[in-house]
């Protein structure tokens, strides 16, 4: 049984004028445990929406299924989707989305507290693993963008998730930092055994993945998977 199994996933948005727009229509997609997969797609192809639906941040339209680790996200009430997200998913964002008032250590620790429980030693170990052992008390604005992304990586791994979702994780980094960040993400995912679903439009990023899909080919709403 795959770690992530998506069937007949549809997501419709209602615009302010009342009209409806179908953004996602994915008949099927699966991801095995520990597998690393890249999804490509241009702007507006629904990459971020897909990740938000997989993580339970957005609820899909009725009728489809997003089965993660044996639980159907699409059928769960919001609070249980939140709990499943905290427990099983690590999220890495293009803009890092670190809490600015919190130190690097606190950003990781808070992620843990919302999931399996705070463990300061583990948080320090994770930050040490991403090369930030000397930056534990630094606030995000006191770190370089590359270092901020490393904090985000450590936070994503904080709850030992089974699935890491990475949304354009190198989009805000220069080429060298991007390569380093990508290597780090894949490395720590491999070490922890987490599956990685990464979306990017950057060919340099996609090249490193053995398994990659163009979202347009999966998403009928974007003209694919017919």
């Amino acid at each position: 049984m795959p770690l992530l199994d998506i069937r007949n996933l549809r997501k419709t948005f209602r615009s302010p004028d009342g009209s409806e727009a179908l953004i996602l229509d994915v008949p099927g997609f699966a991801l095995e445990a520990g597998e690393h997969v890249a999804l490509s797609g241009g702007s507006g192809s629904g990459k971020t929406t897909l990740l938000n639906v997989i993580s339970g941040i957005l609820a899909p339209d009725a009728g489809g299924a997003v089965v993660l680790d044996g639980e159907d996200m699409a059928a769960l009430p919001e609070s249980r989707r939140d709990a499943l997200r905290a427990r099983a998913i690590g999220f890495i964002f293009q803009t890092f989305n670190l809490l600015q008032g919190f130190s690097a250590l606190e950003n990781v620790l808070l992620g843990m507290m919302l999931g399996r429980g705070g463990d300061e030693e583990e948080a320090k170990r994770l930050l040490g693993r991403v090369g930030l052992a000397g930056r534990l008390r630094h606030r995000p604005r006191q770190l370089s963008v590359g270092q901020q992304q490393r904090v985000a990586v450590a936070r994503a791994l904080a709850n030992r998730p089974k699935l890491v979702l990475a949304d354009e994780p190198t989009g805000n980094l220069d080429a060298r930092s991007g390569r380093e960040a990508l290597a780090l993400i894949r490395e720590v995912c491999r070490e922890s055994g987490a599956a990685l679903l990464l979306v990017s439009h950057d060919p340099a990023v996609l090249d490193g993945f053995e398994k990659k899909f163009d979202l347009a080919s999966l998403n009928r709403a974007a003209g694919g998977a017919s």
Partner: peptide
């Protein structure tokens, strides 16, 4: 961000 991290 808190919600994305799993906060209800």
């Amino acid at each position: 961000i808190l919600r994305a991290l799993g906060a209800k």
